[in-house]
Amino acid sequence: MIITSIRRTSRQNLSKVLTTMLVPSRYTIERWSYTLQRVSGVVVMLYFVAHVIETGYVVGGPGVWYVPPYEVAQRSWETVKASLKDPVFDVGLGIIGLLVTFHTINGVRLTLTHFGYTLKRPHRPEFPYEVRSFTNFQRGLFWLSISFAVFSMIYALDTLLGVFRA
């Protein structure tokens, strides 16, 4: 149903909206999951666009719509590789690893919870009220996604930069 006669419930104020989206202080970890899922999703999407453009240059750039000869392809590959040699990109890739892993595992958690799995059945509410949807299982999955994300960042930085290798 599309409500047309509805009064604006709040003045559309971008800074207020962004504060609500990005600063979930005083709320539970489900709210943090909402914020982090959004932020990580947007950042990973930006990375994805950059990655598609970058890999496009690896095979010769947007001007090439045919299969280039072997030597030409090798030359453009080496050019792109040299331009991405900066360790800043490696650290960035580590952060992308963190965000992708978090978004993936938290995404599985959200897919389960969004369809009512891992949540408790409705019951007769009795004081003190227990929130049936804040189950330990789905909260555990959130913390699992955080820990896996940190682990994958360490693994990525180790592989790319060798910083954690003795």
């Binding site: 009512g116 009220y129 949807s133």
Partner: peptide, 22 residues
Amino acid sequence: HFAGSCSQVCPKGVDPALAIQL
């Protein structure tokens, strides 16, 4: 998006987040 704030603040234990997911 299951931010769960509704269930957190509900004074009557209604748990709207659970209802919406179901």
